[in-house]
Design a protein around this nucleic acid. Structure first.
Lengths: 136, 136
DNA sequence: CCTTGACTTCGAGTTTACTCTAACACTTAC
DNA sequence: GTAAGTGTTAGAGTAAACTCGAAGTCAAGG
């Protein structure tokens, strides 16, 4: 089990930000030491993996608001939520992920395009350099 | 030749933003109609391509400040800048591009990782759905 | 016992990147 | 000639995502 500063160290997200994310629903409430209300946050390996996943979504352009929507669906899912709505919740989560997958595809394409363009530019400059002959 | 609103339409960057970019050095000063000082900005196809390239750098995570540094190197290059410094300028531009290329590689890897993770998550939810049996 | 690190709420400050308005000038097309 | 589109400077406003400090509490370790 990890503390909040462990998680901060392991993920590169500050403790301030982790609490902030929790407050705005971007991260689910972690379990607390001894289940007390204001006990120390205890994160499992699974929690760590989840936080890294969320961080990945964020770093690939998903807005905090969108992430929060996704996470909230999952929180409903985890509890003894009325069975009738579980299918809805699963459907929504899948939809959100599908949308992000599309976004990821677009980003990959753009990244590829920018990379090619950048390589071209680079080659152009290198060529200019070569034309000027070796530098003494 | 294009006007600023043509460029806005063609790139999706507002005229406000284009002028702003120009002011902070993210875009080079374009030529003006009849070479007058405050004449209408005239953009060539080459300018358009360059703006798209810059926009690509921005959209793949280069900060405006970094882009400005890159562009400023280029502006020096374009003028009758002391020949002794041209090699320096070329070297710097190539360095900046190389750094961004590294950044692009990292982003691609992360995108790939997040994509895989997202696909896994998606599969997990689909599996849950399947286990609950077909929905009436 | 006392330091350290965790917890809370609340709210202010920062950074980045726009986004727009005001107020005024100029040119071109209808 | 007047409207549309362009130009200028300066500055205010906005939004997202932090980032931090204050002020107070609590619990464990040396």
């Amino acid at each position: 089990m990890y503390t909040i500063s462990d998680i901060a160290r392991l993920t590169g997200i500050s403790a301030y930000t982790l609490r902030y994310y929790e407050k705005i629903g971007v991260l689910p409430d972690p379990t607390r030491q001894e289940g007390r209300k204001n006990g120390i946050r205890r994160y499992s390996d699974q929690d760590l993996r989840f936080i890294r996943f969320i961080h990945g979504l964020k770093q690939t352009g998903m807005k905090l608001e969108e992430i929060a929507a996704f996470v909230q669906e999952g929180c409903l899912l985890a509890d003894d939520y009325p069975v009738m709505h579980v299918d809805e919740t699963l459907k929504k989560r899948i939809e959100i992920l599908d949308e992000h997958l599309e976004h990821l595809e677009k980003q990959m394409q753009q990244l590829e395009a920018v990379r090619n363009f950048t390589l071209e530019k680079r080659a152009f400059y290198v060529n200019l350099q070569a034309q000027r002959g070796p530098i003494k």
